[in-house]
Simulated assay, not measured.
Amino acid sequence: MNITEAAKLLTVAAGFDRRQVTEVTATAWAAVLANYPYPECERAVIEHYRDSKTRGQYLNVSHILDRVESSLRLRTRDIETDVRAAKARGIVPKTWPDNLPLSAEDAGRLQAARDADRETSEQLGIES
């Protein structure tokens, strides 16, 4: 995310909480959110205000990071879980580092495998 996108994101947030969007704030948010895609961050802002648990809280950049990392499965615990599952399914080699996120292609293959497993368990009447 660049400064222009960060300013746009802050403007979206301002639509909810009337915050002042400044160049300093946009620069700071851009630095923290640099590695995250704008659409995911905007979705996180909107989800923050839709969520009954957080809508009363003043949105800050940590709320966005938490939601985006969760949705993109970038938390260490999620990465390790995905890598373990991908290794077990032969999607990545057993030598794949446990803390290295899967590529987008491998993550897609893992999700497809999980979806297929879920569908099979539903057909068999097994609750997950």
Score class of each variant (00 low, 15 high):
T81W: 14
H63K: 01
R84W: 05
T95V: 14
P37Q: 10
T11L: 04
G15A: 02
P101N: 07
E42T: 07
S128F: 15
T81A: 15
L33V: 01
S103I: 10
E47W: 09
A116N: 10
D17H: 08
V21N: 00
V68Q: 02
D106H: 11
L74W: 04
A107H: 11
Q20N: 11
P101S: 10
F16G: 02
L65W: 05
S70C: 08
R43F: 12
Y36N: 04
R75D: 02
V21Q: 00
K53V: 12
V83F: 00
E69H: 11
R75W: 07
R109P: 11
L100M: 14
P39F: 00
R50Y: 09
A44G: 03
A30Y: 02
S128N: 15
S52C: 09
G56I: 03
A116R: 10
A113M: 10
R55E: 04
Y36I: 02
E42N: 08
E47Q: 14
A31W: 05
T11W: 03
R118A: 14
A104K: 09
V83H: 03
E47L: 13
K8S: 12
T81F: 13
K8G: 06
A34Y: 02
L10D: 01
P37R: 06
A86S: 07
A26H: 01
G56H: 09
E127V: 12
T27N: 00
K53A: 14
D51S: 06
S62D: 15
V12I: 10
L59R: 01
L100C: 05
T120Q: 15
P37V: 12
A14T: 01
A6T: 01
A7I: 00
V68N: 02
V68T: 03
N35A: 12
Q111C: 10
R50C: 10
L10Q: 00
D117R: 12
L110N: 05
S121Q: 15
S62K: 14
L110E: 03
T81G: 09
L65V: 05
Q20R: 13
V24Y: 01
R75V: 01
K53P: 06
D82M: 04
E69N: 15
N2S: 02
A28V: 06
A34F: 03
P97E: 04
G15N: 00
N35C: 08
N2P: 03
R43A: 15
P101H: 08
S62Q: 15
A30D: 02
Y49T: 06
N2T: 03
T120A: 15
E119H: 12
V24W: 00
D17V: 06
Y49K: 04
A112G: 12
S128K: 13
L102W: 01
E47G: 07
A88C: 04
R18P: 11
S121Y: 15
R67Y: 05
A116D: 14
A104G: 04
S52E: 12
D106T: 05
S71H: 14
V32W: 00
A112V: 10
E47D: 13
